[in-house]
Amino acid sequence: MSARGRGYRYVGPDELKTAVRPGGGGRRIGSAADFGSWIAERSAEELAEPFTFVVGTDGVLRLAPRRSEHVACADADMVLSAGEISFTHEVVFRRCPGCQEHNIVREDDFVCVFCGSDLPAAWNVDPDPTA
């Protein structure tokens, strides 16, 4: 087990655990590219629902369609966490050029909630230092 936290073993019905086939579990998501390729394979019906997830004792997220069993998503291994997860609308952040506070832009209203200054249309929270 990793030093990242306590691991939890599967405690449900034996028939679900014995049905798990090695390598047939959830997809390991170790990067944005992994997530992008996995999500692109999902149907519209799957995208409308939350997904089954586990975080393995290695700290890596694994995702599977909602109706998947957590024990299958984890390949019957111990986990740090398990549940359902949704990926909702994009959250747009901007740093105010006036007061330097970070803002969440809601409903395309690019105005700083702290000082009322206009927020830039382009991303500026962590600008590229080489640009």
Rank of each mutant, 00 (worst) to 15 (best):
R21W: 05
S86C: 05
A40Y: 11
E49C: 12
F114T: 11
R95Q: 15
E84I: 03
P127V: 12
R9T: 08
F114V: 07
A32S: 12
S31Y: 09
W123D: 13
V105G: 05
C99V: 09
F93Y: 14
N124E: 13
R4E: 06
V91G: 10
H70L: 02
N124Q: 13
V91E: 14
E46T: 06
D108G: 07
I85K: 00
R67H: 10
A3P: 05
A72C: 07
L63A: 01
V55S: 01
A82C: 08
C112F: 02
T18N: 12
S37G: 05
G36N: 15
A82L: 13
F35T: 06
T88R: 10
G5R: 07
I29F: 08
P22A: 11
R28I: 01
C96A: 12
A122P: 02
I85E: 02
F53K: 09
L47Q: 14
I85P: 07
G36E: 15
V71Q: 06
E69V: 01
E45V: 09
D77N: 11
N103W: 11
V54R: 04
G98V: 01
D126N: 12
V55A: 00
D14Y: 05
G12C: 03
S31H: 10
R9Y: 06
D118K: 11
G36A: 14
E49H: 12
S81R: 13
D14K: 12
I39F: 13
E49L: 14
C73M: 04
E45A: 11
D118P: 06
V105D: 04
W38V: 01
L61F: 05
A76C: 07
Y10H: 04
N103V: 12
A64Q: 04
E69P: 04
G30P: 12
G26M: 00
G26F: 00
Q100F: 14
C99F: 08
G24M: 08
T57V: 09
C112G: 09
V20L: 06
R4S: 07
T88M: 02
V111H: 08
H102L: 15
S31E: 10
T52W: 01
P50I: 05
L80T: 05
T130M: 02
W38K: 06
G98R: 15
R21E: 11
T130R: 12
A3W: 05
V55Q: 03
E41Y: 03
G25P: 01
S43E: 08
A40Q: 15
C112I: 06
G36L: 02
G56F: 00
V54A: 04
S2K: 02
I29H: 09
V125C: 15
R95H: 13
A74P: 00
V91D: 11
F35W: 14
Q100N: 14
A32I: 13
M1H: 09
G26A: 02
F53R: 10
D108T: 14
C99H: 10
A19C: 02
F53A: 03
T130A: 08
T52A: 10
G23T: 11
V91I: 15
A19F: 05
G59E: 00
A64D: 03
